[in-house]
Design a protein around this nucleic acid. Structure first.
Length: 509
RNA sequence: GGGCCGUUAGCUCAGUUGGCAGAGCAGCGGACUUUUAAUCCGCGAGUCGUCCGUUCGAGCCGGACACGGCCCA
């Protein structure tokens, strides 16, 4: 009885099943321990980076004839009996190491043979030399295990090809596919360049709430969560827009946020449930000035990634082609673009009946209650975006679908908004912001009616935001760029390659 | 939601008409004093995604499901 209780309270872990290769590697830990060594030491000798040695010895020079210590992951071992060659790698830089009869004490050579596997991280100490074939090499006089690898590495020749495994085990992808590490570097360079471009022109970076009691600033389904302390439902933000505008009311004239948004939708080649956006607001700007800023930011990002203003575009055959971003980016009205796509005249004056027929003829589905503007938008989204390869600004959207955008200065049926589209997907959007609190209240009220009618993407009415507007927000241009999307544009990659850890379905227990 | 493709050793992949489960790399044992995709000899390694069906016999044929990828909506 007492034993049963104990068993229940302290259930034994089920025995782990190890593959043959895992068992072999575990056994090698015992070999190290029998020699008084630990497979996971707190520190190991390392006084240079592998790249330092490579750089200094690039032109046939050798390091001064004094021992130094390097550390890296074992990528290859060639044991010729009298001499053992191995390749260790650190941060993408490799160097050969040699264990020889003459220079390496016999017990250390033996221990290497008995305990080192591909994938182990080792520290090696010795002098830099060249092999008979001229390969820069460290002649090992001493070595330590820095971290024993207990699982067999994917084959270096084949890499890791399974797309699911590549994102689930990104560390493995990084270890065998250099492109994956390069992408992370590109991303870091790009994000830095975007911040640099803004901060150097006196924009202020502010972090606004990600946990919000009301979700707003975009049309999308939110993730819901709950505050225990305040016993209230909260949302992960779908956009930072309404908080950044409060900052504009508060007197900041140039402000931006580069951070994560969350949308409770599926994942595909251009969508991840959490994604990074850049939103910029500038007082006394408008959607025209934001257009110049957007192009500027993307050119800065391109130079950070590629060293010059180009993007990479993948054609239908999978071939990558360079694309010159300095050529002027077309600016086309949404109605003209739709008209061109359907081969019939479409203008802001087109009637609902005409548009219903055009939608039907082009296989575009709209709800029966869709307004003319919503139909134009549906046509635009299904017929224009995917066909757009070169960066193109589509401007002056029907006002129906733009609840946060001010009416066009010359035609109130249009909104002063553009979308930037390239490589078949939307990269960013910008508005001349709606600052009229009376108009804004009406628009959000009609959105909340939609929400009440069951539209899960409708905006919520944020009373505090409206109150802020009533204190007066200066005429303002606002810009949003999808940061992941910009990197996709620049590299020709899918969104899952541009994010270090894209969403993957959790493994079922 | 629909269509197509995929799931076999740690990785990358073959697997014929339904007849003992295969290769390369990786692993294990051995040889080898300058290799660099080292080479040579020998050996081991599998819940063929899951379940059901057809069959004397299923990795292969049929059905359902799961997961992944691509395309379409």
């Amino acid at each position: 009885m007492a034993q049963q209780e104990l068993d229940l309270l302290h259930p034994a872990a089920p025995p782990r099943r190890y593959s043959e290769q895992q068992r072999v590697r575990l056994a090698k830990i015992a070999v190290l321990q029998a020699d008084g060594r630990t497979p996971y030491p707190v520190s190991v000798p390392r006084d240079r980076r592998i790249s330092d040695v490579r750089d200094q010895c690039a032109d046939a020079h050798l390091w001064p004839d004094v021992p130094l210590s390097l550390a890296g992951r074992v990528q290859a071992v060639r044991d010729l009996g009298g001499v053992i060659f191995a390749v260790i790698e650190e941060q993408g830089h490799e160097i050969q190491v040699m264990l020889t009869l003459a220079e390496t004490p016999a017990p250390l050579r033996m221990l290497w043979r008995q305990s080192v596997d591909l994938g182990d991280i080792v520290s090696v100490t010795g002098c830099i030399t060249r092999s008979r074939r001229g390969e820069l090499s460290l002649l090992v006089s001493d070595w330590r295990m820095a971290s024993k690898c207990l699982r067999p590495m994917p084959s270096r020749r084949s890499g890791l090809a399974d797309p699911d495994a590549r994102v689930r085990h990104r560390y493995l992808d990084m270890l065998v596919n250099p492109d994956s590490v390069a992408m992370l570097r590109h991303r870091s360079a790009m994000v830095h360049a975007l911040r640099q471009r803004l901060i150097s022109t006196e924009y202020l970076e502010i972090e606004t709430p990600m946990l919000q009691a009301l979700h707003g600033g975009a049309a999308a389904r939110p993730f819901k969560t709950r505050s225990n302390a305040y016993r209230t439902e909260l949302f992960l933000r779908i956009a930072p827009e309404l908080y950044l505008k409060r900052l504009c009311v508060g007197g900041l004239t140039k402000v931006f946020e580069l951070n994560r948004n969350f949308r409770n939708e599926g994942a595909d080649s251009t969508h991840n449930p959490e994604f990074t956006s850049l939103e910029v607001y500038e007082a006394y700007g408008d959607y025209q000035s934001m257009r110049r800023l957007a192009q500027d930011l993307i050119l800065a990002a391109a130079c950070a990634v590629h060293g010059r203003p180009i993007s990479m575009h993948r054609d239908p055959d999978g071939e990558l082609h360079e694309f010159d971003l300095t050529a002027p980016w077309p600016v086309i009205s949404v109605h003209d673009a739709v008209a061109c796509a359907v081969g019939r005249p479409v203008t802001v004056s087109s009637t609902s009946d005409e548009l219903t027929a055009i939608c039907r003829d082009n296989g575009v589905h709209c709800g029966p209650s869709a307004s003319a503007g919503e139909m134009v938008l549906a046509l635009y989204e299904s017929l224009v975006e995917k066909q757009t390869v070169a960066p193109t600004f589509y401007i002056d959207f029907p006002i129906d679908a733009c609840p946060l955008t001010r009416p066009h200065r010359t035609d109130s049926r249009l909104a002063e908004r553009w979308d930037l589209v390239a490589s078949g997907f939307e990269i960013g959007t910008a508005y001349s912001e709606l600052i009229d609190p009376v108009d804004q209240r009406e628009r959000l009220t009609s959105q909340s009616l939609k929400a009440a009618a069951g539209d899960p993407e409708a905006l919520q009415l944020d009373e505090d935001f409206l109150t802020a507007l009533e204190y007066g927000m200066p005429p303002t241009g606002g810009l949003g760029l999808g940061v992941d999307r910009v990197l996709m544009l620049l590299t020709g990659a899918g969104i899952r390659d541009t994010i270090a850890f894209p969403f993957v379905r959790p493994v079922s227990p």
